[in-house]
């Protein structure tokens, strides 16, 4: 793993950081209509690395992906913190024009539901050719040649004929392959995949995950997966960021976070994972706190078996511990 413990100072304590990250979130907070959705989210992603965002529904995983894509830039959304990407010091301060040169070209995204992400009115060829022509300036013949190449590398057989197909003529798996081909059209440095397989069968999920990994590795690109299946995350991610109610609670190399997890919430998530030989499940009670009613101290305290009076009154800071960042008063 490329991580190392450095003594770089952020707001509170030293965190495990990258020497030369491709993407770095530093204390990013986001509020929608005054309601906090992300709270001081920090993590790094190195070049060629894959990172998994995990956590319960509503934790803020997709929101992070949208921030990284520069898609949450509306008056109803307030954003603070720093997002460093490649040579850009802080993309959050970048005007829309700056984003336009990155989005789709150097940062691309794959969505959960390919059926609604693809435009039903246009053929596959048109939707795939569009970024090639618009962003890379390809001519007619080159666009066609490259489109076929991309579809073939996305594992669609009979690629030439598929160019004329409309999205509804393809199965969910094939639609996701087209989405991947579109996302990879400009050889992005960072790929964001928001639950790319949760609408698909396990068999197709394995195919699609393998495809994304091989394509990303071939380009030495980095990838952020939003996943809710921890087992899958352990298979495809180098690094894991565990989110709870808009905060990073544990993040670091997949090995440490998932195999030797120290945060009670990560352990709780692991106890929900069902495997073939699972005899008993011991999920935590209840669910995420409501947006308007965040607990004062640690947000996980009401569901945490280790919670103490300290937890209920003071927010645990994110700090480095045994090769990972963790926000908990009583890890272990």
């Amino acid at each position: 793993m490329m991580t190392q413990q450095s003594a770089r100072q952020t707001n509170v304590l030293p965190l495990t950081r990258h020497r030369d990250p491709l993407l770095s979130f530093a204390d990013i907070s986001l509020a929608r209509n005054g309601h906090s959705v992300l709270d001081r989210v920090s993590f790094d992603l190195g070049r060629g690395e894959t990172l998994g965002l995990v956590g319960e529904s509503g934790a803020g995983k997709s929101t992070i992906a949208l921030v990284a894509m520069g898609l949450l830039r509306s008056p109803a959304v307030t954003l603070e913190g720093r997002m460093q990407f490649a040579e850009h010091g802080n993309l959050l301060a970048e005007p829309e024009a700056g984003w336009a040169t990155l989005r789709g070209r150097r940062i691309a995204m794959i969505f959960q539901d390919p059926a609604s992400a693809l435009n039903p009115c246009f053929t596959v060829g048109r939707q795939l050719g569009d970024p090639l022509r618009r962003l890379l300036g390809f001519d007619q013949a080159a666009t066609r040649r490259r489109s076929i190449e991309l579809l073939e590398s996305a594992g669609l057989n009979d690629a030439e004929a598929r160019l004329a197909a409309f999205p509804h003529e393809l199965s969910g798996g094939m639609q996701q392959r087209v989405m991947i081909a579109i996302a990879l059209a400009c050889n992005p440095e960072l790929l964001l995949a928001d639950e790319p397989t949760s609408a698909l069968d396990v068999t197709i999920q394995a195919q699609i995950m393998q495809l994304i990994l091989s394509q990303v590795r071939a380009r030495n690109a980095s990838c952020i997966f939003v996943l809710h299946d921890l087992a899958l995350a352990s298979q495809v991610c180098d690094r894991i960021v565990v989110l709870y109610a808009g905060q990073v609670v544990e993040s670091g190399p997949a090995e440490s976070v998932l195999r030797r997890s120290l945060h009670p919430y990560t352990n709780a998530l692991k106890s929900c994972v069902i495997e073939l030989d699972t005899e008993t499940l011991t999920p935590p009670e209840g669910g995420l706190p409501a947006i308007g009613a965040m607990p004062a101290g640690c947000r996980f305290a009401p569901r945490c078996s280790r919670a103490t009076a300290l937890c209920a009154s003071q927010t645990p800071p994110l700090r480095a511990l045994e090769g990972r960042d963790i926000a908990c008063w009583h890890p272990g």
Binding site: T203, Q205, L230, A231, Q235, L258
Partner: peptide, 12 residues
């Protein structure tokens, strides 16, 4: 095809 902790994605 079912995901398993820390095993590489199986031959699909």
């Amino acid at each position: 095809a079912s995901p398993r902790f820390f095993e590489p994605i199986a031959e699909t």
